[in-house]
Write a protein that binds this DNA or RNA. Structure first.
Length: 441
DNA sequence: TCTGGGGTCCTAGGACCC
DNA sequence: TCTGGGGTCCTAGGACCC
């Protein structure tokens, strides 16, 4: 049996822990640049704010309905997440942290009252962290996900499902008839793995509810769609295709991209930005002990600025030797940028991605056609380099990101136009000493 | 005026091999 | 004029997830 534990409206809930006055009010958390709503309280959802909806489209609700918007505070959310994950992990032999606000638990070999365990988990997380969660149980991960959806929806929209399923729901404990009743009122689009496109195509084919899907012909589904959907249906029927991965594998690609506060046209400013992004991905690669075989860089204008000429080049630079060295990666990225940059365009976004990642130290040997000295020199150089990068990371950990870096990534002006807007960010209550909440007598 | 930032997997099609 | 039959590997693009 699997469980899926999920924090309700994670980012908003994190903010509410430290600002209880936000409880019961419509609240959204905005993306980078205060651009889009990326988290919504139930009250904000009820006002009609959609996921990823641009802020300027709903801003009028500030005045009209008391909507409150906050800038994203990922440092806070990350810390709250690790607290919640630590607590959830105590309840099962194995845990897979699936995203910042969700984890799967594998209850294989555990007997007893799962709903009781779920209620205890929920109460403990709520009391110890202040975060409200929903817990779903099922015989497969896909069914656990679905159970979680039911638990959340039953809580939020009374009447949608039996009230007993609110907050904690175990689909595995139901009779066939009870389960069918749940599947009959659940849209296929609510299933994990079925998104907008496939959901719409299924509807066209007359498959509207999860019950329809479970009874659909497997062979024709596979033919029309893919093995991915086939696995999803098998899982919905109770056949395990996905297991809990408690030892996370390193990422296969590492990306840093961002929109700018204002359009950027000059190569020198873009070079500074791309250098910063490349420094960041290099740091991430070292953190997971990977070396990159290639660097991909893109810059792009905005499709929303209809009157602007558009340009969105992307270049992949293979590296002779895979590396996680900031200097090498910044060098390659800046070189790629210089090759594709064209003057006169309003660029609004850039990104650097590391691909072809492999474990550090697993390197292709080189045939030394010269003296042998060159190779020795390369080895010595490599050792110096990893010590240097180690020192760089240690300094930045201690004094804050960006304390030490390559010169091309330096913030040359105090108010560079590309620095993102973040006008409504709350304090980093749990990770910065000078930002801890103050209690007044 | 203002529109996020990460990731994964699968498939089709082309290049290339013998 | 007629123009094979297997493979593999890589990439781009599309779907999905949060």
């Amino acid at each position: 049996m699997f469980a899926l534990v999920d924090v309700n409206n994670m980012y908003v809930s994190c903010e509410r822990v430290f600002r209880p006055s936000l409880v019961g009010r419509p609240v959204v958390v905005l993306s980078n640049n205060d651009g889009c709503a990326i988290a919504r309280s139930n009250e904000a959802k009820d006002l009609g704010v959609k996921m990823a909806q641009p802020w300027f489209q709903v801003r009028h609700l500030e005045r009209e309905a008391g909507l409150i918007a906050l800038s994203a505070n990922f440092e806070l959310y990350g810390d709250m997440s690790s607290r919640m994950m630590t607590l959830a992990a105590r309840y099962a032999p194995r845990q897979e942290v699936y995203s910042i606000d969700e984890c799967f638990l594998d209850f294989e070999g555990v007997s007893g009252d799962l709903v009781g365990i779920g209620r205890d988990l929920r109460a403990t997380v709520l009391q110890w962290t202040g975060l409200p969660t929903s817990v779903g149980f099922g015989p497969t991960k896909t069914l656990a996900k679905l159970a979680n959806h039911v638990a959340k929806t039953a809580d939020r929209k009374p009447g949608s499902y039996p009230a007993a399923l609110a907050q904690v729901c175990d689909l595995g404990a139901m009779s066939r008839a009870e389960l069918d009743d749940v599947l009959r009122v659940t849209d296929v689009g609510d299933v994990w793995g079925i998104g907008r496109k496939i959901g719409a195509r299924l509807h066209e084919g007359g498959i509207r509810t999860v019950l329809d899907l479970v009874h659909a012909d497997m062979a024709s589904l596979r033919r029309q769609f893919s093995v991915v959907l086939e696995k999803t249906v098998l899982e919905l029927r109770g056949t395990t295709c996905l297991s809990v991965e408690d030892a996370p594998s390193p990422n296969q690609q590492i990306m840093c991209s961002r929109s700018f506060g204002e359009p950027v046209t000059g190569l020198s400013e873009l070079t500074e930005i791309v250098s910063q992004f490349a420094s960041r991905v290099a740091e991430k690669a070292r953190a997971q002990q990977s070396a990159a075989g290639a660097v991909q860089v893109f810059i792009t204008t905005s499709a929303f600025r209809k009157r602007d000429a558009q340009h969105g080049p992307s270049v992949t630079m293979p590296l002779v030797r895979p590396t996680a060295d900031t200097r090498a990666l910044v060098g390659a990225a800046v070189h790629a940028l210089a090759g594709m940059y064209r003057p006169g365009f309003n660029y609004v976004k850039a990104g650097v991605m590391l691909v072809d990642l492999r474990p550090q130290g697993q390197e292709q040997g080189e045939l030394d056609l010269f003296t042998g000295a060159a190779e020795q020199e390369a080895v010595a150089h490599h050792q110096d380099r990893s010590r240097l990068m180690g020192a760089l990371d240690a300094l930045n950990r201690r004094f804050g990101r960006g304390a030490v870096g390559v010169a091309s990534a330096a913030h040359r002006t105090a108010h560079s136009s590309h620095i993102a807007r973040q006008e409504r960010r709350s304090p980093r209550y749990t990770t910065r000493l000078d930002e801890v909440p103050t209690a007044r007598a």
